[in-house]
Nucleic acid binder design. Structure first.
Lengths: 336, 336
DNA sequence: CTGAAAGCGCTAACAA
DNA sequence: TTGTTAGCGCTTTCAG
């Protein structure tokens, strides 16, 4: 068995209270006794039991992170931002990955009431109103990353605005036939595709461009699925000259498809993605960068502040979106 | 404050011991009293405090996972295997990501003695002999994934054998000028490149092929770095007809480079990778698949068994390597 | 089958 | 400046 605080106290000829004080850097300990205690600690190779400490103080020194899963670069990048920021603090990171809606419900219900974490970070999983109310009302403080709810602190991504931004960019490049490819709405954990599509539609409207159903594809997430599904866009005699893909992974799938069909990018087809995952840079993909990593950093900061003192009103932070023009888009000649 | 076991006991008119028994499914509780307790629990919306439970039982119900970082697909895939397997158990996953050798030393030293985890999983971070001895000797049980040490349980990857396998394959395809591109040895956390390179050299030797220094490139990890560094291979008038890249990410970098230089793959250049990351499939890369996900699964299983009962001798499991021929390699015509 | 009580290792309030 | 002690919420003997 490991030595306890009592062993140290005995060895140093002091009370456990004193040992506790030096453990917690209390200023009110005589230098001499502090030394003695430190020596005893050293000799016994003592290390305080964090569990006992947690029970006594009521703090777990732990932050829970719930995310959809570990398969998408966007989640990983956010997690990376969270992890690296948290590593600089005294808090540990407990990871919860949800595989299904049922998992999500279970986690949302159990983790907060389990008194296991001092704070909770939820990535890319929008809570229902009912769930949100529970998060808002009680411990532990909770912060949403890439999701929004009026009653909870959140790091918000303006998907609608981003959808507009991407579409507007293509239109400025003289594209008028613009396809959209995104996640299947029914099975997604997160409605980002829906919002981005809304921004797309709104922008077409603004420019008086009539949306065409044949230009809109919703498909199960994944590069390969996107690649296959994108074919439909180009079988058409009146194929789009540009595609806005709801995420970079799907954009890359569209590029795969173009490659397969012998379409040159950007000469024959412009492609713009969304997210700014690391791969986007490698394939030279024009995209809306949403600062994934930074969203994790900000989320942690916000959470730590909430843990210090719960704000009266839920704090909101909007991550700036940035269009990064790269090699997959080009200005179309006017003659169209 | 949340209700405690005492509140439940009072409400149900029983002792706390009894409540504890129903909480832990002890068979020796009369059905009637069990019901009463359950009702009280329900009414109070009581949930046992896991911290208190941990202090009392000495079990933390937590497994620690240490890995180099969250940037490489190979680590993530292993983590995914770990996470999904652990999620099926009662254990929580605490994530530690090391950013530097110093981090690694600190984690290796602190985490085991901190009594914070019931078991420890170390991914792709080989311990020194001294560290290994400490892991072996004391709690918590530890298993290495993608690393080997005689005194610790480990899920082993035969990098040397894999290096041979890849090289042998290229030679069978009639390649004789075979380049190698891998991680810079000095800065790597893990010596896998070194081992794979050893297997490469050994195989050249076996076939009487003289290794050429100009064919060997060691560069900081990353797709872009690989892309740039690979140029040196082809500036040469006597350029290799095939490249074995030490990992898939670098192999993809080599493909980028070939693309840039107008080299056709596989007609002008064959490329084989190592790892079997998800992207390898998308870019149709021939590779040595090391079952990354599975290594995480097996690691968890081994750890859980060790936590049940520490084995007398460290257990060893070797992950099977599988060569997956895809579109980046082809048989070279004999005339060379 | 059940209640009472003794810890688990620590912190913090209270005295001294 | 320090020692003593009462918890923190639970599990687990030990009686009964």
């Amino acid at each position: 068995m490991s030595p306890t605080i009592r062993d140290v106290a005995k060895k140093a000829n002091v009370g456990v209270g004193t040992v506790s004080r030096v453990l917690n850097d209390s200023p009110q300990v005589k230098e001499e006794t502090r030394k003695a205690v430190l020596t005893a600690i050293e000799e016994l190779d003592y290390s305080p039991n964090p569990i006992a400490r947690r029970l006594s103080t009521g703090k777990t020194l732990t932050v829970g992170v719930i995310l959809p899963n570990l398969t998408r670069s966007s989640y990983i990048e956010r997690l990376r931002g969270v992890q690296e920021t948290l590593a600089k603090t005294k808090y540990h990171l407990v990871l919860y990955s949800v595989g299904s809606k049922e998992d999500q419900d279970a986690y949302f219900r159990e983790i907060p009431r389990s008194q296991m974490v001092d704070g909770l970070l939820i990535i890319s999983l929008p809570p229902s109103d009912e769930q949100a109310e529970r998060f808002a009302k009680s411990k532990p403080p909770t912060v949403l990353i890439d999701a929004y709810h009026p009653s909870i602190c959140s790091v918000f991504v303006d998907d609608r605005g981003g959808g507009k931004m991407a579409t507007e960019y293509l239109i400025e490049q003289n594209h008028r036939k613009i396809g959209f490819l995104g996640d299947k709405l029914e099975t997604a954990f997160h409605p980002s595709t829906q919002y981005r599509f809304w921004g797309y539609g709104k922008t077409l409207e603004k420019y008086g461009i009539r949306p065409k159903d044949e230009y809109h594809i919703f498909v199960e997430h994944g590069r390969l699925n996107a690649r296959r599904a994108a074919q439909k866009l180009f079988n058409n005699s009146d194929a789009p000259s540009a595609v806005f893909a709801s995420c970079d992974t799907q954009a890359i799938g569209v590029m795969d498809c173009a490659d397969e069909l012998g379409l040159r990018i950007p000469e024959d087809l412009s492609v713009i993605g969304f997210d700014g995952i690391p791969d986007a840079e490698f394939v030279n993909l024009t995209t809306i960068d949403q600062n994934l990593y930074q969203s994790g950093v900000v989320g942690v900061q916000m959470l730590l502040e909430s843990m210090q003192e719960l704000p009266d009103n839920p704090r909101k932070h909007t991550i700036p979106l940035e269009l990064i023009p790269r090699g997959t888009t080009m200005k179309k000649k006017e003659n169209n």
